[in-house]
């Protein structure tokens, strides 16, 4: 077990190094000079451009820039943003709570919808209910995110005026603390109201994906002997479905969630833009447009670390979900 974890950690470090190298290479072979963009069009001047290039260290050979960056990382230094003129770590960590809130809310929402609906769709296979669920699944996959987001804004923010169209209503954790310590629901309410529309938009394709996996997993299990045994033992149908059959769907579901983690954490840029949500995706995409390489590298690194850690945890979770799996 320990050996397995150790091996996964070294593997993870190799992957991280690869990610860093890839993003570094991608950034530096790109047309568009960071110094030029920082200088700005209005104050374009060759002397200033040369000064900025030296100041940003962009005149040094690429491999020196890369090794310097790696050395900085080893000291825990993510670098300094060209554009925002702040440490990259500050830029990332001030956006992390919002990113996690949105990802967490979307994940929770899709689990809450997909698990029961998928199970029921499998139980009543080929019923009208199954077809409706199937149609919902396909629909969830097919709506372009920004399209769905704009339609939700028009419906719930403009037409009914039930929910705000954009922004974040303060920290969710802060709201929870307020509720627990002071019995005040206002802050949490405000936070949740802002979270609903972006979370629903982000959750739509994930819900569809999960529903498909849950349905297939449960369906497969229902045909198996152990379910027949369970039924024969006289267990209630609910117990058979949710205890035994659903468990069969868990492993593929967990795998798919792991693969989706990257998308939830860093790939929500379209939804963040539509709802003006202050997350990490926008930070990264803006950094590309502005050639703010330290910010881009830092943010990609943090998302990649999160992704790798999640995968390690998932691999460990397999063992817990399925006792047949042993770690060599």
């Amino acid at each position: 077990m320990t050996r397995f974890v150790m091996r996964r950690i070294t593997g993870g470090l190799t992957v991280l190094l690869g990610v860093l190298f890839l993003v570094f290479a991608l950034a530096h072979i790109a047309p568009g000079d960071p110094a030029l963009l920082i200088m700005g069009l209005e104050s374009a001047d060759p002397e200033r451009l040369a000064d900025l290039t030296v100041k940003l260290g962009l005149d040094r050979p690429l491999w020196i820039q890369f090794t310097d960056y790696l050395q900085g990382l080893l000291r825990g230094d993510l670098g300094y943003s060209y554009r925002a003129q702040q440490p990259v770590s500050v830029l990332i960590f001030e956006r992390l709570p919002a990113t996690l809130e949105l990802a967490g809310a979307a994940l929770l929402l899709s689990l809450v919808i997909a698990v029961p609906l998928g199970t029921l769709a499998a139980r009543f296979q080929r019923s009208g209910w199954d077809y409706v669920a199937g149609l919902g699944t396909v629909l969830g996959f097919s709506l372009p995110g920004f399209w769905l987001g704009l339609l939700l804004i028009l419906t719930f923010a403009l037409f009914f005026q039930w929910l705000p169209a954009s922004g974040r209503g303060g920290s969710l954790m802060g709201g929870v603390v307020d509720l627990l310590l002071r019995g005040e629901f206002r802050a949490l309410g405000l936070s949740l109201r802002h979270l609903i529309l972006p979370a629903v938009t982000l959750a739509a394709p994930l819900t569809a994906l999960l529903m498909r996996f849950v349905r297939n997993g449960v369906l497969q299990a229902l045909g198996n002997d152990y379910i027949r045994t369970a039924r024969a033992k006289g267990l209630s149908e609910r117990c058979v479905l949710f205890r035994h059959a659903l468990k069969n769907a868990l492993i593929p579901m967990v795998t798919v969630l792991g693969l989706y983690a990257g998308r939830l954490l860093g790939g929500a840029v379209v939804i963040e833009t539509v709802f003006a949500w202050p997350g990490a995706g926008r930070l990264m995409v803006n950094a590309i447009g502005r050639r703010d390489f330290p910010t881009l590298q830092g943010a990609v690194l943090v998302v990649a670390v999160a992704f790798i850690v999640i995968h390690l945890l998932l691999d460990l979770a397999y063992g817990w979900l399925d006792p047949r799996i042993r770690y060599e």
Partner: peptide
């Protein structure tokens, strides 16, 4: 000052008075 990058969203916020 609030940054709202998407123009359609910014318009909705103006129309609803937020």
């Amino acid at each position: 000052f609030r940054p709202i990058p998407e123009t359609s969203t910014r318009l909705v916020e103006l129309e609803t008075g937020r």
